[in-house]
Every structure is written in structure tokens, then in C-alpha cells.
Design a protein around this nucleic acid. Sequence first.
DNA 1: CAGGATCCTTACCGATACTG
DNA 2: CAGTATCGGTAAGGATCCTG
Lengths: 138, 138
Amino acid sequence: MVTAWIPHYCGPVAKPLDPEMFDPLCPSELMPIRVGDKWAGMIIQCLEDGPRRFSELRVPLRNITPKVLTKSLRTLERDAFIVRTIHAGPSRQVQYELTSLGRSLLELLDAARAWAETHLEELIDAREAAIARASRTS
Amino acid sequence: MVTAWIPHYCGPVAKPLDPEMFDPLCPSELMPIRVGDKWAGMIIQCLEDGPRRFSELRVPLRNITPKVLTKSLRTLERDAFIVRTIHAGPSRQVQYELTSLGRSLLELLDAARAWAETHLEELIDAREAAIARASRTS
DNA sequence: CAGGATCCTTACCGATACTG
DNA sequence: CAGTATCGGTAAGGATCCTG
């Protein structure tokens, strides 16, 4: 994930999230590691560069349905990994942001992703061998 | 997990598994990280010190029912994290052992456990606050 | 001993439609 | 915009009993 910096702010500024960020073939998807529910790990990674809005999050998460996203976000909020802030304005605006606890999970997620990238070939080989075995049995 | 060494063998030797190894309050349970299904991570950690038998594994895994253990083991075998060996003998004996791929997951699991231990207090606080909030609402 | 068979309950996840 | 409401399918997990 790329981080951009602006002077006199000295914090990461959010870049548009990549719709292909979590396509089904990326290591984040292939690794057998999960944080919380299916989406929690991906959500946390989406928040790495700064706060995001509800509808902004849906894009990289393969247009996750609002119900599922809401549930996952509420769980993350309950467990103190993110905070939810409502900014009043012309159009309603809700921001989700990592807490320090949530941020501390990023390292772990990076480690998991690194593991998956390292062993990607083995993982795919095993999967293909399993498929071959299954088709031979049937 | 403790490792004992015997000379002229130079490999870890299995110690009896602790029945309380994965009690519901240990960091392995509190951490929001999972490898594969609910039991996979715990099984892998049980195999850290060497091969184990089916019935041996059930003890630390809170007397998991055989059906569930079998399914989890088969999945781990399919994905090349463990190997299953049948040793013929007076009474049937089946051993489960980590592959190098499975073994490589141990670091990640250790990192996850370390994370959970570091943030244990925050995790419990968040959980308790959530419970308090819930009871106030009802 | 190492499981398989059966039944059941719940959780997860998704699609669609609707609302303050 | 940020959700709720409703419905439905699938899979995970577990209890109990049975078997080569």
C-alpha cells in the first residue's frame, strides 16, 4: 500500500483505494490466515493510510453488501480496533479510523502477507495436487 | 511450548500435551487471528514438538469431537501443512506431523501469540467495556 | 484406536429492497 | 450517504451413537 505525504501535516494522507486491492488471487486471499471474520483483515488494511468513509470501503472490498460491511465494522469497533466518527455536514459523513490497537495489527497482517507471498508456490502446488487427486477419485 | 533434547538424536522430542493448553482465556484464544478453520492453528501448535496421534491431539483441544478433528486434519493434510502416517501394529496407530510448510507457520503463530500477549490488557478492557455497554442498553 | 454416520443448531455471508 | 430490514443458502461446529 502506498503512502503519500503532504508538508505541514506530517501524517499519511489517504489515496483512492484500489478496486483490485483484494482480488481473489492476491496473497491476502490465498493465505490461510484470518483476523476476526472474513473481512476484518482487509478492512484494517484499507484503513492503513488514514480514515475512510463507509462507501469508500465498499469499493476495494469487492462491493461488499452494506449489511455485511456494517456488521464487520461494528465488531471491529466493539473490539477497539477502529473508531467511528460522524461528521455533520451537507451530506451525512461517517469516518472509520484505526485506533492504536488496530494499527498494531498491521505488522501482523504484513507478516502474514509476507508469509503467503513466500510460500505462494507451495500453496498453489498443494491446491492443484488436491484438485488432481479429487478428480482422479471421482 | 517446551522443547526437550536428547543427545544423538538432535530433534525435538514430544512431551505430553497440556490439557489446559488452549483454555478459553489463553492468548491463542483471545487473539483475533485464525489460521484456516477454528482448530487449525491450535493443531499446528500441538504438533510443534513432534508427531502426535489422533487421540493425543484431542486432549489439549478441549476434547474436540472426532468428526471435527478429522475434518480439520484432512484439510491441513490436503493443504500440505501436515502428513498423515499409518503405523501398523498391535493397536492401530496414526501419526500426524508437520511438513516444512506447516512448520513455517509456527513463526507466524508465535508472532500472533506475542501480539495477543502484548495487548492482552487492551483486548480484555475492550471486551469488558462492550459487555458493560450491552448490559446498559438492555 | 481412529475414525465414520447421522442429526441438529448456529454463524456467516450474500442478494435485494427500502429508509432517515 | 450510511445504513436497516428481510429472506435465503451454505458451511461450520457440535452431540451422540456406531464400526473395522
